[in-house]
Amino acid sequence: MAKESTFNPEHQATNTASKVVAALERLSEAFRVLLWQEAKQHGISPIQVQILTYLLHYPDKFKTVTNLASHFNMTKATISDAIKSVESKGFLKRKEDVNDNRSHTLLLTREGKNIARKIEDFANPIQDSVNNLAPDKQAGLLEQLLYLIQDLNRNLVITPQRMCLNCRFYEQKGKLHYCNLVNAFLNAGDLRVDCPEFTVPV
């Protein structure tokens, strides 16, 4: 028997999981629309908006083609093409790795930092909507989204994220979250999507 389509409204009406997937699709559309609007306003592509925003905030050790490709679930070739375009606009420069001349750290120029600060607020309408939720609802939503991302990581749909649930130091004790790095229980709202201390499990 053929599996009913998630996108069939009649099927959705009686299937909660399908309604959740449909709702997530609407949210992804909202994100995509906001990204396109910002990109078009500045004459760059959506992925270039994301690259500039990433380079504005992440530590230098993560500012490489390899890390960008993993973060955005894209091939190195696709990321390299986008970086070349950003570089041609004068928004970034490459710093050669003294230990490996094939590797470069990608650094924003002054102009690159200026435009990155202008475009990084593209997701604010979504942020404002989330802020309208009560704090406990925000924490619960975060927790459930992280579980979904973790499952997608396990099924190799997207690359493993640098989040608490994937970290060497994370442990689930019953229904509680525990971090062995800080030796403390974490509330759902304390969980991180991208943690500076993230360590790959052994």
Rank of each mutant, 00 (worst) to 15 (best):
I115L: 04
A116M: 13
Q50L: 15
I158Q: 00
Q138C: 02
I83A: 11
L92V: 11
L92K: 03
A123D: 05
A139P: 07
A17K: 09
Q144R: 01
N183E: 14
V202E: 10
E10A: 15
A22N: 05
T6I: 08
H42P: 07
S85E: 15
Q161G: 05
E111G: 09
F72V: 04
F62T: 09
H57G: 13
S129V: 15
N187R: 05
Q48V: 13
S70W: 14
V130Q: 04
V157P: 00
P46S: 12
E10L: 15
E143P: 00
D100R: 10
D81H: 15
E197K: 11
R26Y: 12
V157H: 02
F62A: 09
D128M: 12
F91P: 04
K93D: 05
K40R: 12
H71K: 09
K118C: 07
P160T: 01
Q127P: 08
D81T: 13
E120C: 06
R192L: 07
L106V: 10
E171S: 06
N131A: 12
E4R: 08
G90C: 09
R117T: 08
I115E: 03
R102D: 14
L27C: 07
L176I: 05
L152R: 00
S129T: 10
A82S: 09
A17I: 08
V98P: 03
C179M: 02
E171D: 09
A69H: 02
N99V: 02
L142Y: 04
I47A: 11
G189A: 03
L52C: 14
I51A: 14
L146A: 00
R162Y: 04
V202D: 07
V157A: 04
L191S: 00
L55P: 06
F185Q: 07
N99T: 10
Q172G: 03
F122D: 06
A82E: 06
F91Q: 09
L55I: 13
K61Y: 15
T53L: 08
N15V: 09
S45D: 14
L56H: 11
N114S: 10
C167Y: 05
L55R: 10
L107K: 13
Y147M: 00
Y58K: 09
R110Q: 15
Q150W: 04
R154W: 06
Q144W: 01
R94F: 15
G189P: 02
V98T: 06
S5E: 10
T105C: 04
P160E: 03
K137S: 06
I115F: 05
H104F: 14
A139E: 04
T14E: 07
V182W: 02
A134V: 09
L52N: 13
N155A: 01
G140A: 10
D60A: 15
V20Y: 01
V200L: 08
D128K: 02
P135M: 14
L141R: 02
C164V: 03
K40L: 08
L27F: 06
L107S: 13
L56F: 13
V182T: 10
A22G: 04
G140C: 08
E38Y: 05
V98Q: 13
L52G: 06
L181G: 01
A188Q: 02
M163E: 05
L55T: 11
Q12I: 06
P196G: 08
H57R: 12
I51M: 13
N155H: 03
E171M: 05
M163R: 01
P125I: 12
E143W: 00
S103W: 03
T199V: 08
N15H: 15
Y178A: 04
K95E: 15
K118R: 12
A77P: 00
A30K: 09
